[in-house]
């Protein structure tokens, strides 16, 4: 039992629990190719770390986990830098907005509720969609190579927007407004929920922006890297809620776990992997939804003014 006192969170936790948590979530993120913020932040809060510290520190940890991925995609040139920059510009504004909103909600005493609601909403929608999609994919494959019909919706509103520009890597000619809006939204989520936002951005890039799948992951990691880095600095300067000791422990566990997870990927078929991830997302969502509605252990909640 090696306890470690976290200087900003101001609580003492077991070092091996934290390392194990980093390792476990890192393993899943390596296996599934997701950031893992959506799992880590609720667990940190559950361990007793103040939500503000959990969210801010998690943004810092995601910087580490997105660097290696973004670098790999950069080398393979599977990254649309122009699109990424537009998403980052949106993300910068979103992050600034999110950090302000976070401070406001904290003053109102509603931050825990809003974080939980955001998680339930996003994890429920994304997890549900993923589950349906992967189950269908498994069924199709079992039916011995059924035809994959891609019924694409017709483009509507997005094509009518102004400020069109060319994105050569993605082979798109479109308005900069949708990627700016997506970037803004994801930046705000990063600040509010302590996630990278890849689970929102990747589907949005594929289904709304119609980007080629090959550049989607790299571009989203590229955006996440810069937006979470900015969020970390903003949270540190405005709220002093980044715990560098906690971040370091989680990062050490995380990078090792991610390497192990990445090695496991080849042994598991892709659809089953996606179905397993979907189940994981849905169960985290259900747990949080249950906690929102279940009778609280204590009807009263103490909100402390963070002292010197």
């Amino acid at each position: 039992m090696v306890q470690i006192y976290l200087p900003i969170a101001e609580i003492s936790l077991n070092l091996f629990v934290l390392l194990g948590l980093g390792l476990g979530v890192g393993f899943l993120s390596g296996l599934f190719g997701v950031g893992g913020g959506f799992l880590m932040t609720p667990i940190l809060i559950f361990l007793g770390i103040p939500p503000a510290v959990a969210v801010s520190t998690q943004a810092n940890q995601i910087v580490a986990s997105s660097v290696s991925g973004a670098l790999a995609h950069w080398r393979r040139k599977t990254l649309d830098v122009k699109m990424g920059l537009v998403l980052i510009i949106g993300g910068v504004f979103g992050s600034v907005f999110g950090v302000q909103l976070f401070s406001l909600l904290q003053r109102l005493g509603q931050i825990d509720l809003v974080i939980s609601l955001c998680y339930v909403l996003f994890l429920g929608v994304i997890g549900g969609l993923m589950l349906v999609e992967s189950v269908n994919a498994i069924r199709r494959r079992r039916k011995a190579g059924g035809s994959r019909s891609k019924a694409r919706r017709k483009r509507g509103l997005i094509d009518t927007l102004p400020f069109k520009t060319r994105f050569p890597v993605s082979g798109l000619y479109m308005s900069v407004i949708p990627p700016l809006a997506i970037g803004f939204f994801v930046g705000a989520l990063a600040a509010l929920m302590g996630v990278g936002g890849g689970f929102v951005m990747v589907p949005a890039m594929i289904y709304l922006l119609r980007m080629p799948t090959s550049v989607v992951i790299g571009t989203s990691l590229f955006q996440i890297l810069f937006v979470t880095a900015l969020t970390t600095v903003l949270q540190a300067t405005q709220n002093q809620t980044v715990d560098i000791v906690l971040a370091a422990i989680l990062i050490i566990g995380g990078v090792i776990g991610a390497q192990i997870g990445a090695r496991f990927v080849q042994r598991v078929p892709a659809e089953e992997l996606r179905a397993a991830l979907a189940l994981l997302v849905v169960s985290v969502c259900l747990k949080l939804a249950w906690d929102l509605g279940a009778p609280p252990p204590d009807l009263y909640e103490l909100i402390e003014a963070r002292g010197p």
């Binding site: 580490a64 660097v67 290696s68 790999a72 370091a248």
Partner: peptide, 10 residues
């Protein structure tokens, strides 16, 4: 610190 750790791991 985070960026270096991620880069080193990669």
């Amino acid at each position: 610190m985070a960026a270096l750790a991620g880069w080193a791991a990669a």
